[in-house]
């Protein structure tokens, strides 16, 4: 089965990756947010650097918070961003 997921980036994650969103295809072996991060990190230096420290990142699957261990399932959108600083 071919499935894809829309990735959206915010704040310094967006700036350092030089893009605000992209769509990637996911193979059968991709189960968790951590698996997606591994695919992205293998793409090049910018990704590897920005995504290296997952402690400094937050994730949301279809607009709900998740962790690197969260299952992608049928989610359509994965957001990757720094800890929030509103208010």
């Amino acid at each position: 089965m071919n499935r894809s997921i829309n990735l959206v980036y915010f704040a310094w994650v967006r700036e350092r990756l030089g893009r605000d969103e992209e769509t990637i295809r996911l193979g059968e072996e991709v189960g968790t947010i951590g698996d997606v991060l591994d695919i992205l990190k293998a793409r090049g230096t910018a990704y590897a650097e920005v995504l290296s420290d997952s402690e400094k990142l937050r994730f949301a699957l279809d607009q709900d918070y998740g962790t690197a261990a969260s299952t992608i399932g049928s989610a359509r959108e994965l957001a990757i961003f720094p800890p929030v600083t509103g208010g």
């Binding site: 915010f10 704040a11 949301a60 918070y65 957001a79 961003f81 720094p82 929030v84 600083t85 509103g86 208010g87």
Partner: peptide, 14 residues
């Protein structure tokens, strides 16, 4: 509400 907002609402300040 303010304490929650500052830690979970997806806003970023530059």
């Amino acid at each position: 509400i303010m304490d929650r907002l500052k830690t979970v609402a997806p806003f970023w300040k530059k």
